[in-house]
Design a protein around this nucleic acid. Sequence first.
DNA 1: ATGAAAGCGCTAACAC
DNA 2: GTGTTAGCGCTTTCAT
Lengths: 360, 360
Amino acid sequence: MDVRRPTMKDVARQAGLSTATVSRVLNGHPNVTPEVRTRVLAVIEDLKYRPSRLARGLRTKITPVIGLIISDIQNFFFTSVTRGVEDIASRNGYSLILCNTDEDINRERAYLEVMHSENVAGIILASACETGHDPNLYGGQIPIVALDRLITDVPLDHVMGDNVGGARTAVKHLLSLGHQRIGLITSHQRLTTGRERQEGYEQALAESGLPLDPALIRRADFRRVDDSRQQALDLLGLPHPPTALFTANTLVTLGTLTAIRERGLCIPQDIALVAFDDIPWGSLLNPPLTAVRQPTYELGTTAAEMLLARIADPLRPPTSIRLKLQLLVRESCGARARLAPVGEAVADAPDVARVVSERR
Amino acid sequence: MDVRRPTMKDVARQAGLSTATVSRVLNGHPNVTPEVRTRVLAVIEDLKYRPSRLARGLRTKITPVIGLIISDIQNFFFTSVTRGVEDIASRNGYSLILCNTDEDINRERAYLEVMHSENVAGIILASACETGHDPNLYGGQIPIVALDRLITDVPLDHVMGDNVGGARTAVKHLLSLGHQRIGLITSHQRLTTGRERQEGYEQALAESGLPLDPALIRRADFRRVDDSRQQALDLLGLPHPPTALFTANTLVTLGTLTAIRERGLCIPQDIALVAFDDIPWGSLLNPPLTAVRQPTYELGTTAAEMLLARIADPLRPPTSIRLKLQLLVRESCGARARLAPVGEAVADAPDVARVVSERR
DNA sequence: ATGAAAGCGCTAACAC
DNA sequence: GTGTTAGCGCTTTCAT
């Protein structure tokens, strides 16, 4: 048994042709007799020949692979985005290398190095930080689309949600419910997402003429659920505690819910909550979670399409897309959830979508 | 501005050496003067040179990449496994290509083709089916470790949880609570996981001398949450409905919980539930979820280590590892959760671990 | 329409 | 210790 994988040479020999012709068949070149073409195909089938991407990539300098670098593979936001990216990629003949940095800038760099040396066609990147990027690694000849997080020190294409608008709507919802003291638990300010969501929070308060109480704004290390929990406990333990909470990302929401539960508080009687980012189990919580939902899958497809466009035309000017978010109001008693559009209004969006929810 | 990436030749020229020497430096070869070594390194730094993995791979026939093929990237089970794989991989200088088949055997094949032609060092695979694998694709020269799901038609290494034992313990727990009519909602039987968990269910009943009521066993298309929901509704609507439910995987659990909620039933008063596979939000549900927990991260690290071992020694006999599972009993009132070891007892496992849980 | 041959960037004998 | 050289498997002129 021959342990060696068959090469193009083997195919050529067995078909009594040259490797050039085999290559032409493989690449759908016009100048090939149908007769020859079928013969080559037969031999390929027979030998179970599979072209080496390595060799091809080395020669052509292009590989049909795109890289996706995310910071938390456990986060529903990113896995959902990934599916979007993947669908567009595979539909266009690209395969996907997915890498998880765990919010570690060094791992991010390492993976970028890998992708450079693998010569991938393009990269979609949710960077662990906003600035401090080596232009050589990030601004090189390989196209990069920044996902979810703004990168300000290198000119790139961007795809992200309308964080400010989403946060503003979330807080306005709480305001409309009559809350006057609304706490914010967010992440550190290294990431634009955290800052933008805080911006939305502040805008909403300002628009209602409410003062900003710094004591109600907390930052948690958003990788450590326990830290969010602690911040929430602090907030709830204040002499004059907030009546509502806005949590700026999934991990913070998790920690906050844990804290609320520990304190034996009930939502919404004791404390109201609106979360940024929906979660798969949101409707099963008690009460079901009200959240600003990002169009995660579309974020993924959009980023992938943008990357493909840039691969096709490296010279097009950098573009930036903000996707509209929706506030998903789940009502525990009303047997329904309301979907309210959010952020920069877009004409073609439904004003209110209604989905039947669970009884309780 | 030179758009071309610098090559080894460029480095060699600028350093006044041959490419062979540069290569030696890069690969930590002994026969290099320290003086030369530092000079080369300086030039590399200066030129921002990065070796091409493509060329290297083509030449050496090995690439420091391992592939992980999973069937559902949205599933916590797999993302957690992925982190385990990733940690071991990167610790050993490998990068990870992650591919998502969406339970589609054709996508699985396509990705395997990709990995073959990328010449990856090895593959960890959660296959979409038990049999029907092309030995050419699955039994070729590239090492494969089967993860989570048994592959019976090709001899491979296996790493998976003790499904039978886990399911048996789950059902025994329900029996110990006094339940006599226990429903099972599982997946189709194409996958060994579903069959094995049913096996455990049946064993537990048999050991208690209870009859098997086929009406209480339901199969759902486990990709469609709504199907599980429907099966659960059916079960709950029976003239003589079960008093407890055992759900065999996460998606089924999701559908079942939705159904229970729709029916306005309360756990555990109206219906008891034990799930196979824990979920991140399990402790936030009301009541918190009792589940058989798989050691997901360890499943990943174990599979990766097994793969590395096989890469190092392709001739070692195929081995199969079953990891022990634990029943995680979360009690809503008792302010604590109990961890009971499950499956083939292993001596060094703690008998009972206690974690403080939330008040309610 | 097909073949010969060069070369992509790297490694590994083999010389010296 | 360092250089020379021959490929790895493929694509792509340039001939024919």
